[in-house]
Design a protein around this nucleic acid. Sequence first.
DNA 1: TTCATTTTGTTGTTTTTCCAACAAACACAG
DNA 2: CTGTGTTTGTTGGAAAAACAACAAAATGAA
Lengths: 218, 218
Amino acid sequence: MKQFEILKNAPILDGIPEEEFDFLITSLNCQLKNYPKDYIVLKEGTHLKRTGFLIQGALRQYCNHYWDNPIELSTLQPGTLFALSFQVDKEISLVSYQTLCHTVILWFDLEPLFEFKDEKGYHRRLISNLLQAMNEQNQQLLAHRTHLSQPTTREKILSYLSLESLRQQADEFDIPFDRQGLADYLCVERSAMSKELSKLKSDGYLITSKNHFKLLKP
Amino acid sequence: MKQFEILKNAPILDGIPEEEFDFLITSLNCQLKNYPKDYIVLKEGTHLKRTGFLIQGALRQYCNHYWDNPIELSTLQPGTLFALSFQVDKEISLVSYQTLCHTVILWFDLEPLFEFKDEKGYHRRLISNLLQAMNEQNQQLLAHRTHLSQPTTREKILSYLSLESLRQQADEFDIPFDRQGLADYLCVERSAMSKELSKLKSDGYLITSKNHFKLLKP
DNA sequence: TTCATTTTGTTGTTTTTCCAACAAACACAG
DNA sequence: CTGTGTTTGTTGGAAAAACAACAAAATGAA
C-alpha cells in the first residue's frame, strides 16, 4: 500500500523497526483522516492541538492576517510534518493549511513522547529524528534568511553562490534552480537578476552556463 | 556564582533537578573553556564536532564565504546553544563565531543523549527541551523570512504588523523595536520605512505613537 | 528647568529595482 | 529537420528604495 510506503520511508521513523509501529500508533493516539480538495485543514489563529504528518496529497501553507492580504509560504509534499506544538492549548498557529487535492493526514499527539513509558527507547528515537528534521529545516531557513537580508540583488546572488560553494566544498558546482527558480528563491526579478549575473560575469566573478557555476576571484 | 546561575536558569535544563547536573556533566563529556576577546571559536567550513553553550561573554555570528564579503548574522547572548550537529564529522559549519569579549563556553557531546543509558529519563528531558528551543527558533525564522520575502517596504511592514497582531491576539499592541530597530529587522532603510508608515497612517491602515500600534481596516 | 543627545519624520536627489516587451538560444516532439 | 514552446539575456521607461541632509520631537542628565 502506497500510504504505508510513505510512512515507512519517512525520515521521522528512521531506525524504528516496522513491528514497533503498532506500539507507536497506539501510544501516540494516531488518527488517519481524509480531506477533499480545497479544504482548510488548519486556520491561523486557532490553538495547536495535534501534530500532522502529510501522507498523501498536497497542502498549501499560507498566511492571511489582519488585512486579508494572503501570503503564500510553501506547498507541503507527502512526508512532511506540520502544526507541531510543545505546549498544547498555549500556542496558536501562525499559518493556515489548505488541501490542493484529495489529501490524507495522520494526526497524532506529541506528549506521550515525553512521558515515562518507553522501555525499548523508540519514543526517544522518534524524538531524536524529530530533532534532526527540525535542525535541517533550521539550517535551510537560516541560509535563506541570510540571502534575503542582503540589500541588493547582486549581494543576494553572491551570498547564495558563496554559501553553495561552501556547502558543496567546491568552487564549481550545479545549483538546483533554473533562472526563474533562483529569482523566486532570492525574491528578486528574474530580468534584474539576469542583468546582475551578466555584470558579475563581465566583472570576472564567475562563469556560468545553464545551472552550472564556476566561481572566480577577480 | 554567576556562571552557574546562567546554566541553572537555561531553558535547556528546564525540569532537570540540580542534583542531576553532575550526572549530565559526566555523561555528556562537558568541558568549560575560556577565550580571550576577538578569538575565532569556530570557523565556517570546518567539521562540526561538539555543541556549544554560551555561558558568559558574547559571540559574533557571521559568514565570510568565497569572496571575503563578510555578512553579519547576529550576536549571541549567554544562554544560547550553537554549533549543533547530529551527524558528527559529516556536517560542516556554515557560519563562523568570534568572541566580542572574554567569553566562557561549555562544550559537550550530543550523542550520549541518543544512547541507552538513561534510567531516570533526564536525557530524554534534555532532548525535549532541545526540541522545544529549536521549534521556537524555527517559528521566528519562518516569520522573519516571510516578512523579508515581501517585495516592497510597505508589504514588509504590513506582513510584520499583521503577524504581530495575530501573535498578540489584539489589533492594538506594542512592538519590541524602535524605528531603527524595526528597519534593521525588516532589512529596509529607516527613512523609507518612516515614509511608508506615514502613508499607511494617512491611508487609514493604522495609528501609531512610538512603539505602540493600533491596526485599522480602512 | 535647561541643554545635549537621541530618535523620528520629512524632503529632494541619486541609484537600484521592477516591469514589459522582445530577441536569441535552447529543448524537444513529430 | 522543422516548428513550437520554453528558457534566458537584453533593453528602456516607470516606480520604488536608498541615501544624505536637516528639522522637529522626545529623552535624559545636570
